[in-house]
């Protein structure tokens, strides 16, 4: 229950304090969810680690939907798809060093932003414009936040 409250606070911080001049917020919960999944996949019991990542994705998504006035389940679905992809791709890999978290975040962010565009943009998605306005800036923001959050989370979970 404690972590659901924490997710609520983080979601509030994302939609209010972390708004950028680009017109959207820094994807804090996406980054935390993916980092949490990666750390879980590097744990002794991968199943438990991945389940925790998946639960973070689902609850974070629902919280963002409530705060962002999007249909309930939209963010949750996008986050779940990104998390499943990262978990599947890294299921046999050893997660050490900065390269893998960055690559995982690149893939996850592109999936997340693309699914969000498909789900919430009215009419057919104009991919060229979406790439320029949402995908590239959103992914860059996520990549910038990845390493500090990944190493901080890993340190906190080991402590």
């Amino acid at each position: 229950m404690g972590y659901i409250l924490l997710i609520g606070v983080l979601a509030l911080v994302q939609v209010t304090l972390l708004r950028t001049p680009l017109g959207f917020s820094a994807p804090l919960l996406l980054v935390i969810t993916i980092c949490r999944t990666l750390i879980g996949m590097g744990a002794a019991f991968r199943d438990i680690g991945m389940v925790q990542g998946v639960r973070w994705a689902f609850y974070s998504g629902l919280m963002l939907d409530i705060l962002a006035a999007t249909p309930l389940g939209t963010h949750a679905f996008a986050l779940l798809l990104a998390t499943i992809t990262v978990a599947f791709a890294t299921r046999r890999l050893r997660i050490e060093g900065p390269l893998l978290p960055l690559l995982a975040m690149l893939v996850a962010s592109l999936i997340y932003e693309s699914v969000m565009a498909l789900l919430i943009q009215p009419g057919p998605v104009m991919w060229g414009d979406t790439l320029r306005v949402a995908l590239i800036p959103g992914t860059l923001l996520a990549l910038i936040m990845t390493l500090p959050i990944f190493f901080l989370l890993r340190w906190m979970l080991r402590a």
């Binding site: 404690g2 972590y3 924490l6 002794a44 199943d47 991945m50 050893r94 989370l153 979970l157």
Partner: peptide, 26 residues
């Protein structure tokens, strides 16, 4: 607050992939 169960980070290399159960849940 981050987890509801304790998490032990893997120190040794393990080739044991995650089972299908978490993917089914997802």
């Amino acid at each position: 607050y981050l987890d509801d169960r304790s998490l032990r980070l893997r120190r040794e290399r393990s080739d044991q992939p995650a089972s299908a159960r978490p993917f089914v849940l997802a």
